[in-house]
Nucleic acid binder design. Structure first.
Length: 424
RNA sequence: GUGGCCGUAGCUCAGUUGGCAGAGCGCCAGGUUGUGGUCCUGGACGUCGCGGGUUCGAGUCCCGUCGGUCACCCCA
């Protein structure tokens, strides 16, 4: 630690995934990939930065995420670029650009796992770089696609072992329904505008629907008795919502309809949903999604409906941790080679190559420490087996194989040890 | 962006009205010329987050700053 230069720290709100935790990440990412593939979604990987315009047009100028939380910078050619704050806009941009929606009736089902960036003040479950697993279905307008996404999402949580989940859904309807409801809401709230919180007074003009899910007492009071969104749904939107609830019921997925659920991004049009989990503190949304039937067109593609969700992986891991859920991070057993003397060390160096070539996970300490120290290391590294070589083994053409859990040690001919360890 | 709490060894933390920098765990070595997870003995490891101020003297008091944490806000 004695260094003259001051140590550089990770940027605020970012975290290193250290060796002790990476197995947990790999485990949930593996579950996500297997499950998405099972539901016939293919992986897509898009850049972590995009032209800033993409998020302004796609996610929306009035959303906090775009208006005050992006990491935006100019490159050497003076183009404005932004680290992606969410996954959907980039995926839709990529799908349009690759022409995957150009055929009539084309559909695309993709999933992604990767980092997003938002310059917020960090707190529990909220980081400046966070990771999401998400899926998008493009080209299917039916509620079946919405419900497929929700089922996949809930099954993901089930397989990871999260408990105490709550699914809430709502529908603000298509663009026309949303506009009608927006007008009605403004009309209802306006007489009491001066009693709203400062933030909501601003939102009354820019994004009045957001006032619905404000936690501010003044806002809650002002919207009491406000007309429900359901009354302003077009016939098509109402039908869509009904079918979605019906399908969820038949799939035995518990949910509640929450008329105050309004999700942040401008591109949402019909159904939106959110899943919360116990153990997360104030940031208790573990994932959310919704339908965005205008986004593809807004981004320059042929008008195509879309639906998807994003799920925060840090929050998932926090919930699992807080709930005391064990994640299966088992690896193949580790073999530790113990060398007593230089000749033995050289022999073990060769043996280690043979074992690795044969698929046996193994390691050794090359620093010439005492047998005791080498066994302590094996113990600390959670090795299952030790293979000891010393003068007597070299003379006899054997190694000493020890089961470190039971302490039992046997002599094995040197030319049989690789095959023997392959079979344990 | 606003506010509360917190930064001392690798980790968890003590440190009294300002007066020699501490404990437990972990780590290294020995006890056992070749055997771990128990035990015993010894040892190493600190810019007290950083910068400034007050003072004879600051881990301790004051100011600033960086970071962590929690909440608001927002969201995964």
């Amino acid at each position: 630690m004695a260094s003259t230069a001051s140590a550089i720290q990770a940027p605020k709100g970012t975290r290193d995934i250290l060796p002790a935790e990476s197995a947990r990440w790999q485990a949930i990412e593996r579950i996500a990939r297997e499950l998405a593939t099972l539901y016939h979604f293919d992986e897509i990987r898009t850049p972590i930065f995009e032209h800033s315009e993409l998020f302004h047009r796609g996610v929306g100028e009035t959303t906090d995420i775009v208006s005050k939380e992006t990491y935006t910078f100019s490159d050497r050619e003076d183009r404005s670029l932004t680290l992606r704050p969410e996954g959907t806009a980039g995926v839709v941009r990529a799908v349009i650009e690759a022409g995957l929606l150009n055929d009539q009736g084309a559909r695309v089902k993709v999933f992604y796992i990767g980092p997003n960036f938002r310059c917020e003040k960090p707190q529990k479950g909220r980081y400046r770089q966070h990771h999401q697993f998400g899926v998008e279905t493009l080209g299917i307008a039916e509620a079946d696609a919405d419900v497929e996404c929700i089922l996949l999402q809930m099954e993901f949580y089930r397989r990871c072992g999260v408990k105490d989940l709550a699914l809430r859904i709502n529908s603000l309807g298509d663009a026309e329904s949303k506009q009608r409801y927006r007008d009605a809401l403004v009309k209802f709230i306006s007489p009491a505008a001066s009693t709203l919180s400062e933030e909501s007074q601003r939102r009354l003009a820019s994004n009045p629907l957001r006032i619905l899910d404000s936690k501010d007492e003044r806002d809650i009071k002002a919207i009491r008795g406000a007309p429900p969104a359901a009354e302003y749904l077009s016939e098509a939107s109402a039908k869509h919502f009904t079918r979605a609830r019906d399908l969820l019921g038949k799939a035995n997925v518990p949910f509640t309809v929450d008329g105050t659920l309004v999700r942040g991004f401008d591109y949402y049009t019909g159904i939106v949903w959110e899943v919360t989990a116990a153990g997360l503190g104030a940031q208790n949304a573990i994932g959310g999604g919704g339908r965005y039937d205008n986004l593809v067109e807004m981004l320059g593609g042929r008008a195509t409906p879309g639906v998807g969700f994003g799920s925060g992986l840090e929050r998932l891991l926090i919930a699992l941790e807080e709930q005391g859920v064990a994640i299966d991070t088992r690896q193949r057993p580790l073999v530790w080679l113990v060398s007593l003397g230089d000749a033995a060390r050289d022999a073990n160096w060769q043996l280690m190559q043979q074992l690795r070539a044969a698929g046996v996970r193994c390691d050794m300490d090359p620093t010439g420490r005492s047998a005791k120290s080498q066994f302590k290391l094996a113990d600390r590294e959670k090795a299952a087996w030790s293979v000891t070589t010393g003068d007597s083994e070299l003379a006899g053409g054997t190694v000493s194989l020890k089961n470190l859990a039971s302490g039992e040690q046997t002599s094995v001919p040197r030319d049989q040890i690789v095959a023997k360890l392959q079979s344990v």
